[in-house]
Amino acid sequence: MSIQPGTEGSAPVGAELGAPAQTPPSPDKGMFGVKGTGDVSGFGRLTRPRPAAFDSPRPYGGYFDDVYDALEEAYPALSEAIEKVVVDRAELTLHVRAEHIVEVCQVMRDDAALRFELCSSVDAVDYLGSDERRFHIAYQLTSMTYRRRVRLEVAVADGVTVPSVTGVYPTADWQEREIYDMFGVVFPGHPNLTRILMPDDWEGHPQRKDYPLGGVPVEYKGAEIPPPDQRRVYQ
């Protein structure tokens, strides 16, 4: 299993007790008797732990400085709202504290020097094992006036809520529902936070890293598809 750096070989556990996709106990051997990664070259052992995103130093380059300065001017409490600023691969990421996300979005949308009219995408990533606050919600904002993109990122631990931005960007409605459905992050202030892609009575949140893929007993007698990490795989 490659999904958890540092815990190689550990079997995935179900998201919650009684979850339909809970992995049944299975032997360590894969379908073809391969142990571990099946890698004999040795290079496969070179695991690179995901480095924490570091604060980027000023100047950020490009329009990023303009965006940051304009935001600072329009939103004086910025220093306590922002945890860090990361510039990577020509993309600007502002790590925002959860309780400030709605205010920051409001300023980003309305300020004349920012004008991020469109919230392109809202989605989440589960950094289980590498960050205490495992769920990172990413808001991809687009300024059509200035043709700029900025990403806001909010990190929360399991069970911690993130205020809904649907009041500022109504388009976040279904996308926050999807995050709730797939990760179980709750957005207070959302008009109708229900499951959207999975059935209403589904247990567990499938996109969590500790929710296994496959291994679900199917209806045919005795048939079961092993989870992919139990099949033959080269990692």
Binding site: S2, I3, P5, T47, R48, P49, R50, S120, S121, D123, V125, D126, S130, A138, Q140, T142, Q207, Q235
Partner: peptide, 21 residues
């Protein structure tokens, strides 16, 4: 319309997360 791909890598041979907008 806008098709967005949010891809995250942890340095491995598999995607850590890919989200399609």
């Amino acid at each position: 319309g806008e098709l967005g791909v949010h891809a995250v890598s942890d340095g491995g041979t598999h995607p850590y997360r890919v989200h399609y907008r």
